[in-house]
Amino acid sequence: MRKLLKIEWQKIKTYKTFWLVISLYFVFLLSGIMLAELIFNAMIDDLSKNSPFPLPHVSFYTFPDIWHNITYFASIRFVVIFPAVLVIILVCNEFSFKTSRQNILNGLSRTDFVTSKLILVTVLSFFILLVIMISSLILGIIHTDEITVQSFFHKFEFLGGFFIQMLTLLVFSLFIAFMIRSTALSIAVFTFYVIIMEPILVMILKIPNFQPNTVGRYFPINNALNIVEYPSVTGLIKTLGFRLQENVVFQDIFLSIGYTLLFCFLIYFSMRKRDI
């Protein structure tokens, strides 16, 4: 275990692409949330003009909403594609450099090789979670006037939900990479499925009787991304009387874990059967 972790670390620590893509991910997610707040407040200003009462500006960064909002922005399809593509690059590299073969010839079993990649995505998910936690903490402390224990820990569970969500996504990208093995094709298939095919399918399934929740809700990516739903601004919700997601739904989490285990099994199975 420690050895496999050490091996993966030796592979990425001086790999510039890795650090570049992971930094881009954080830049996109943080600028996404800032931009969203700006746009939101601009819209509120607009609405206020015709409103009988003034609408308050919102902050995405106050406790406890920050936990929810930042994890939401960290997992919208266009942003989450960064760490997923990164995982695809790391795995397909092994096949295109033929270092997968070299690793196995040097004494990693095929199972060890897959395990090392699972460790990689788990640690990567933790790392992302950690960076998100720290940035939320800083942003939250700056923007919240009065921090109470209750406001701080309420919605803290979204971090856990986010971890499962990220892990499921990365294991899915791992699955695509292990099956296809070519970087370009894997990225294309992953992007097509996550950004185009699944959303369209989900939409089509809703059409016949305009149900909000159809079987599309349970597709792997859709399910995972639903763990953390639309961002929330408690102040505004109270004002307008909206009801948005307050809790992580455990059914989504369990299903995501189920998908993760299934993908892991398929990866192990194919590595045992296929030539390397």
Partner: peptide
């Protein structure tokens, strides 16, 4: 092997 197999960036 005929073609050496290493991490090019290391």
């Amino acid at each position: 092997f005929e073609t050496p197999q290493f991490y090019p960036y290391l």
